[in-house]
């Protein structure tokens, strides 16, 4: 694992290694000293071209808990707003001696470009690129599912997860479908036809347009945010109609299996895709997802920087 660009890069064993590592690292949170010396002297750059609260803070907390030096770089207030290109920004980071770059970009594929262009030599971790992928979100969702559904061990074989909402604009949905499939769960995507991406039939999942049909007996339902900032056309007649057909309310949540849980990657539009009752209810694990995000990102930073150290050494000895 030299970079983490897509959930598809992860084999089942690699995904399980990340989840197991995150489980152990999570214990640090309960200790008096919430810090490990592992990445002392390493530099992690948070490169955010797009607004983000929880992902950026989560990566910050993860890097700091592992004692890495952290540089946060957001497009607003940087030279990017003066028109600096991705390449020039990358060269600046390389010159600063970054060991890992955590990148969020509004263009799909930007992290891939950064990793494979030869501009920089450091590890690239995708923190969300356009409507493409958000692999660490999928990992923290899988971690949360595993914690509740299989006692925090093993994979998710035989479990069924329903992902509902704006699949078209969602990088979370794509990463989750790929990762959950690798972990043995079956996934059903539910959305209005206008919010299903072209070619979704080639994804390793089921597709449905009827939420009431998909929910009964499912182990978990993941609600996606309706991403108005990416919508440049009318995808559904009205918000009222959307929430009536695809919103999660108490009645629909009760259709889940007895141990079924409700996830949302945040930020939520309360009253739109999810009612406040369900968001704050018994089955909701939304707040827990945030905590798990830090643990999973610690595991990713540790494993990627560790693997690179090993690869560099092998190269040097040859």
């Amino acid at each position: 694992m030299r970079h983490l660009l897509s959930a598809a890069d992860l084999t089942r064993d690699e995904a399980l290694l990340i989840l197991d590592t995150a489980g152990e690292l999570g214990k640090v949170t309960d200790r008096a000293v919430k810090k490990l010396p592992t990445l002392r002297g390493r530099t992690v750059v948070n490169l955010f071209f797009e607004d983000s609260t929880r992902t950026r803070i989560s990566f910050e907390a993860a890097a700091k808990r592992l004692s890495a030096d952290l540089i946060t770089f957001s497009a607003k207030g940087s030279s990017v707003s003066k028109g600096e290109s991705l390449k020039d920004t990358a060269l600046t980071l390389e010159a600063m001696g970054a060991d890992a770059v955590v990148v969020r970009h509004e263009a799909s594929g930007a992290p891939h470009r950064l990793a494979h262009s030869g501009w920089i030599d450091c590890a690239v971790i995708n923190a969300g690129d356009g409507t493409h992928e958000h692999p660490t979100q999928a990992l923290l969702d899988a971690f949360t599912l595993r914690h509740h559904l299989s006692g925090g061990e093993g994979a998710l074989d035989g479990r069924r997860v329903v992902i509902v909402g704006d699949v078209l604009h969602s990088r979370v949905a794509r990463s989750n479908v790929l990762l959950l499939h690798a972990l043995g769960a079956s996934v059903t995507l539910v959305a209005p036809p206008t919010l299903m991406p072209v070619g979704v039939q080639t994804w390793p999942c089921e597709v449905s347009y009827d939420l009431d049909d998909a929910l009964p007996g499912a182990s978990a339902v993941m609600m996606l945010r309706v991403q108005r900032e990416r919508m440049n056309a009318a995808y559904f007649p009205s918000t009222h109609e959307y929430s009536r057909r695809y919103g999660l309310d108490t009645r629909r949540a009760s259709l889940l299996a007895d141990d079924g849980i409700v996830l949302h990657p945040g930020p939520m539009n309360r009253g739109m895709e999810i009612t406040a009752d369900v968001a704050d209810g018994q089955r909701s694990v939304i707040v827990e997802q945030v905590t798990n995000g830090v643990n999973v990102r610690m595991a990713v930073l540790y494993l990627i920087l560790g693997a690179r150290a090993e690869a560099d050494l092998t190269e040097a000895s040859q």
Binding site: I304, G306, A307, A309
Partner: peptide, 10 residues
């Protein structure tokens, strides 16, 4: 870590 790489945690 620089010499031996990341290992699974116990």
């Amino acid at each position: 870590l620089r010499l031996r790489g990341a290992r699974p945690l116990e």
